[in-house]
Simulated assay, not measured.
Amino acid sequence: MGRARVCVLGSANMDLVVYAERAPELGETVTGRRFVTVPGGKGANQAIAAARAGGAVTMVGSVGGDPYGRQLRAVLDDAGVDTRALAEVAEATGTAHILVEDGGDNSIVVVPGANGTVHGPAPGLEDALSGAHLLLLQLELPLDAVLAGARAARERGVKVVLTPAPARPLPADLLACVDLLVPNESEARVLTGKDDAESAARALAETVPEVVVTLGADGARWLRRDGAGEHVPAPSVQVRDTTAAGDTFVGTLAVALGEGRPMEQALRWATAAAALSVGQEGASTSMPARARIEEFGAETFGAETFGAESFGAPFDGGASER
């Protein structure tokens, strides 16, 4: 089949990134070694990752009419993302203030800015969903906008993939629209109260058709409501910055599923892309192109297991099980 068509409804931030040996304790000052500004936001990150992985991607959201907003739009455009539904509003562009420790761990404070102005059905969303295989959602926009997006996609037969970050309790009416939930370990614990990834995945699979819990250096755990599932280990790589790993994983996973790949293979694509991203600094700047994903994935998992050709029909998300 043709290219995966992915719609992303989400945040666009400018990441203000400080690199330091370690994070300060409360009330403490530490000296950083480097400061950079990098286009980011979970929505924009997932859109760029999906576009670089080969998807036809549309971004829906809002930025300000300031230099950060113009830069974000330019970066998305350069990645091949359709930004006609990325509105310009009076509010300042959102920012994310990120501290990256030398070991690769990070902590983030997000100021929503223009992202906080997106409410209800976002302008341009209906057109963006036309012909899409999947809608990617996160929780950096107001919840009413996320819910409206999920409902609109559900009504049009577009499969809904939700990254529940920042973690918060999820209302039942949102979960009812979700085909695939992709939390990391800490988000899965917040959502379920379970201490381990396996128990959390099983609890979440009772609420949505499929769940993938990302496990950092341990890879990812997939579980379907009917009990099918798999653990995909992560390749061993040198870690420089984990900031974009989760968004790279989700964006690439969406493209692989939109191309009709079975979940087992899509997970290997996503895991390979995420492993490549942690070897580079920054968010959008660390996301690999499709050719590199294919090369690294074939080396890591074996060419036949990884696969570079497209498969049958696009992702059905287990919707028939609802």
Rank of each mutant, 00 (worst) to 15 (best):
D15K: 06
T207K: 14
G216Q: 04
M287P: 09
L204H: 03
S236Y: 04
T252G: 06
A122V: 01
G94P: 08
S11Y: 01
V278Y: 04
A44V: 13
P164W: 04
M1W: 00
E28W: 00
E88L: 00
A4G: 15
R70T: 12
Q71R: 15
A96D: 03
R154T: 14
G64C: 05
Y19H: 13
A90Y: 00
R261T: 01
T93L: 11
A298H: 04
D173I: 14
G65P: 02
L76C: 13
A132I: 10
L215M: 04
R322Q: 04
S277F: 13
R3Q: 12
R292A: 14
I108C: 05
R52T: 06
S107Q: 14
A217H: 09
G227D: 01
S11I: 07
L16M: 02
D247F: 12
E88I: 14
A152W: 02
V178L: 12
T207S: 14
G317K: 01
V190W: 07
E21R: 14
R261E: 02
G124I: 06
D218A: 14
R202Y: 02
T31W: 13
T207R: 15
G94C: 08
V18D: 02
S277P: 09
M14L: 15
P233C: 02
V110C: 02
A87S: 10
D226T: 07
G10D: 11
H231S: 12
M14P: 05
Q265V: 12
P142A: 10
D195N: 13
R70M: 06
A188I: 07
N106Y: 05
A313I: 07
L139Y: 07
S320V: 11
G251H: 04
L141V: 09
T214R: 01
P183I: 02
R84F: 13
A303C: 13
R3F: 03
E264Y: 04
H231P: 04
G103I: 07
A87K: 07
G55C: 01
V81M: 02
A56E: 15
A298P: 02
S107H: 12
M59N: 03
V278H: 03
R240V: 15
M263K: 02
T285A: 15
A74R: 15
A12F: 09
A150Y: 03
F35D: 05
S320W: 11
S199W: 08
R189F: 04
V89L: 10
V178F: 09
E155F: 00
F249G: 04
F249R: 02
V18S: 10
A148I: 06
A92P: 14
Q238D: 09
W269S: 08
P123M: 11
D196Y: 09
P233Y: 05
E295C: 06
R151Y: 01
G260A: 00
L204R: 03
Q138K: 00
G149F: 10
L191M: 01
Q280H: 15
G41N: 10
G32R: 07
R154H: 09
G279P: 00
P288W: 03
G302R: 05
L174W: 10
E295A: 15
V60N: 00
L125P: 13
L170C: 06
G131A: 13
T58G: 01
R168A: 15
T300E: 13
P235F: 12
D127T: 14
G131D: 11
E321G: 06
L134I: 13
R292H: 11
G131Q: 09
G69L: 08
T243A: 08
A220S: 13
L267T: 06
L72Q: 04
V237E: 00
W269H: 15
E295D: 12
G103M: 05
V110F: 06
L191A: 01
